[in-house]
Amino acid sequence: MTHADPEMSTFEWTPPGTTPPFDGEITPHVVGDLADDLLATLENRGLTAADLVRKVAREACDWLNDEGCDDAAVGHTLLHHELALLREAHGWRGPVARFLGALERVCGKVADDGSPALREALSAECALWQEVGSDLLPDRARCGAELLVTGAFHPAAGLESGEVILVHGWSETVARAVELAQAKGLVPEIIVSEGGPDLGGRRLARRLVASGLVVRFIYDAALVDAVKRVDRVWLGTEAIGQRAFVGRLGTRAVLERAQELDVPSAVLATSDKFTPDGSTAAPAWSEQEPWHLWEGAPHGVTVESQSFESIPLELAGVYATDEGLFGPQELTRRAVKSLVSASR
């Protein structure tokens, strides 16, 4: 069995018999200097989508500003060759899809005619995506702040001291919200699940215990049963579409159980998680790398290794974003608004 190193981020494992970096099934057709430089970054699936975009934007900016960068067909080269692996491995994540969409819009407005104009425009766009806490990549801590407002319109808000919160695996946004609650003296107890094949829940548990919180760690199989023991459910997501959001496998069952028991649930997500085209999809690599679930499965066994799923928006009680709290219906309207603005 392959074990995740305690210092490793989520999904940094490599299958037995390989030497990092492992590019699995997602090697681009043409690998140039930028694509080659990005390989190690793109294989670290533990990076938050925002941190990933910032790193890629910085590398792309350097590549575009390099004296050796050829102005001929620079837009096509950047999007379809140098960033092909980014799209294939991480394009399902909201912030990544929005970043790539922004570059495509630049290419649609500036002629790719061999002049430096497009290269300069793309470089300027990449520079915008490097800023921390900008409107393009908002501060994740603001989601938790919205949830902790006493007297807010939804029962999922206004955490009281000593409450028990159920969390499914790793989420940077949820981690920040819990730490904010701790800083405010609310001292919640956290029940954390394994979090799929990467055991991202261990990473979260280590972080929260270091903050002085009481943490209980459970099997993913115990998630649904654990709902009856908690005061609320907090979940993260990588992408939100018009009708669904993407979560770890098991999220749907947890939210359905929370509805049955009238346990308040919240999905914490910054506005960059809204996908530009309103669609959601699970990552292809999760199906293409069955070793995450079973290494060396015998011939004849089909390993269904997809560890993410799309969950209908209406299953969550509230969505805590950097722009405020939204019920499912309001979030649907917000997603449509995001879709319209992303097309401009």
Rank of each mutant, 00 (worst) to 15 (best):
residue 39 L to P: 00
residue 237 T to N: 08
residue 42 L to Y: 00
residue 273 K to R: 15
residue 281 A to F: 01
residue 187 V to K: 14
residue 55 K to I: 15
residue 111 A to L: 09
residue 108 G to S: 06
residue 243 R to C: 10
residue 43 E to K: 13
residue 326 F to G: 02
residue 61 C to K: 10
residue 103 L to C: 11
residue 139 D to Y: 06
residue 278 G to F: 03
residue 48 T to Y: 05
residue 282 A to G: 06
residue 272 D to Y: 02
residue 160 E to T: 14
residue 86 L to Q: 02
residue 96 V to M: 09
residue 298 P to T: 00
residue 262 D to K: 07
residue 8 M to Y: 09
residue 92 W to P: 02
residue 87 R to G: 12
residue 200 G to I: 05
residue 163 E to S: 03
residue 23 D to L: 15
residue 306 Q to S: 09
residue 283 P to H: 04
residue 204 L to T: 01
residue 152 A to Y: 12
residue 336 V to R: 13
residue 23 D to T: 14
residue 245 F to E: 02
residue 184 K to P: 08
residue 309 E to I: 00
residue 249 L to S: 14
residue 320 A to Q: 00
residue 103 L to K: 12
residue 89 A to K: 10
residue 258 A to P: 06
residue 182 Q to T: 08
residue 24 G to S: 10
residue 140 R to Y: 06
residue 160 E to S: 15
residue 83 L to R: 13
residue 26 I to V: 10
residue 200 G to P: 06
residue 328 P to S: 11
residue 175 A to P: 04
residue 187 V to G: 04
residue 307 S to Q: 15
residue 111 A to P: 01
residue 166 L to M: 08
residue 248 R to S: 12
residue 143 C to Y: 07
residue 19 T to V: 13
residue 305 S to Y: 06
residue 272 D to G: 01
residue 79 L to P: 10
residue 177 A to N: 09
residue 39 L to K: 15
residue 339 L to K: 09
residue 200 G to T: 01
residue 72 A to E: 13
residue 221 A to H: 01
residue 270 T to W: 04
residue 264 P to G: 02
residue 9 S to Q: 12
residue 16 P to E: 04
residue 11 F to Q: 06
residue 53 V to N: 04
residue 324 G to C: 04
residue 227 V to G: 05
residue 314 E to Q: 13
residue 102 A to H: 11
